[in-house]
Design a protein around this nucleic acid. Structure first.
Lengths: 235, 235
DNA sequence: TGTGCTCGGATTGTATAAAGTTTCGCCTGT
DNA sequence: ACAGGCGAAACTTTATACAATCCGAGCACA
């Protein structure tokens, strides 16, 4: 009988039921199946996953901490609706953190990692070819998470996961065109730079990639909350 | 009767009982009254705050997400014990984020903010003069949080709160001398740079301040976990 | 006809009870 | 005397019951 090794309590894929709920809801939000503002009733989710409200609440609280769910007292949990201000903050943070992440990734390059990156690019291309928008959105985010994992920096990885999840909501809310969420081409260029261990190029590619994503957004400023009513209904 | 304005659900000082517990425990950890590894029993805390275990559990889960508490399955919650590797990650992240934060703070400078900063420096000096180590430690961290608030960037603020809390544990565990956690002089120099809106100087001061803190640490690498036992007990 | 109020249904917040797991002490066997 | 195993106590985990709150339909009234 194999001795039971103590596993880290916060293992990413802890197979407990709370994690299953959290990951299920997260995936639904990241794939744009759950839209901002959607009510996430405790009973409803509990029935879907065959769990009691206790576990559902735990999962929802974790998601609230990650910023993709809002919990309003006595009203329940809702898929977050980031404001344009939130969006600018998220992308500013990403522009700060991700160049550093790819920088570190260049140092961690290995055959195994290059394999995983290449495989991921293939998956992205396939999803895009068959027009699977949901998979495309999910994989776009996962590319950035993959690079963060590669950096071997668990704090950056944690921060980035949060930023990616919120970015997904932001893109859904504010994207102007129906262009793909993250150009696969950009990702390929970033991988090329990483393969060459060219930190300078990697940082530059990542930065321009992020700028391009943000440039596709239409972040209208709700100048004053009071005037909106007249604005919207005055037509 | 004043109309009830909808308050943000995650108001920092939400006067609900969960927040009181969370802030109480956080303060105890940040002031080094609770040492790393200390068991945080649910009953125990619940009795102190007159709350049921349900609420205590919620608070502990939030603290776990912030990285200052570890929850081990079926064993309970413990004050986190960051490894030297964790420590390096935390300070690397701080060196990345905090220069950007002071940069933004320089743009937000105003009489009101300068007042708050000055007042804070006074408090720090007073605590240090009367040898109140606990208050010193707490205020040192709060200075950095204050600058982050000043930056007006809620994401950076959230990230930094996490990093500060963990830094406090790290300093407790790994500090070599009994030098003050954060030199008040450094803080004063940073404030001076902010007052002059000198971004360059502010970033430089902040960076050297962080470097100095980390330099005071003794981050021994536990080369192999197995050898530690022999090391420690071999004397 | 439109406004404001009240009551009922539904949902969340909290507490408590049942179930499962770990840990530590004690005891037995060698 | 000491290693190993059994068992009870303590704790965490999960489920459920109760209390508090919110939202909306329907009604009374101006």
């Amino acid at each position: 009988m194999a001795a039971k090794i103590r596993q880290k309590s916060d293992a990413p894929d802890a197979s407990d039921r709370v994690s299953r709920i959290r990951e299920g809801v997260t995936a639904a939000i990241l794939e744009h199946r759950l839209l901002p503002g959607t009510k996430l009733g405790e009973d409803e989710i509990g029935e879907i996953y065959g769990a009691s409200r206790t576990l559902v609440r735990t999962a929802l609280q974790q998601l609230a901490h990650e910023g993709i769910v809002n919990i309003e007292k006595n009203r329940g949990a809702f898929v977050a609706r980031p404001t344009p201000g939130d969006a600018r903050e998220v992308f500013e943070a990403r522009r700060l953190i991700e160049p550093t992440i790819v920088d570190r990734a260049c140092e961690a390059v290995s055959a195994a990692w290059l394999d995983r990156l290449g495989q991921h690019l293939t998956e992205e291309r396939e999803a895009e070819l068959r027009g699977d928008a949901r998979a495309s959105v999910r994989l776009s985010g996962e590319f950035h998470k993959l690079v963060a994992e590669m950096s071997g920096h668990s704090i950056y990885l944690g921060f980035l996961k949060e930023l990616i999840a919120r970015s997904s909501l932001i893109i859904l809310l504010y994207r102007r065109h129906d262009t793909p969420a993250c150009g696969t081409d950009h990702h390929a260029e970033i991988v090329t730079a990483i393969r060459k261990r060219d930190k300078q190029a990697a940082r530059a590619q990542m930065l321009s990639h992020l700028n391009e994503i943000e440039a596709e957004l239409f972040l209208k400023d709700p100048a004053a909350d009071d005037t909106r009513l007249a604005d919207v209904l005055g037509a």
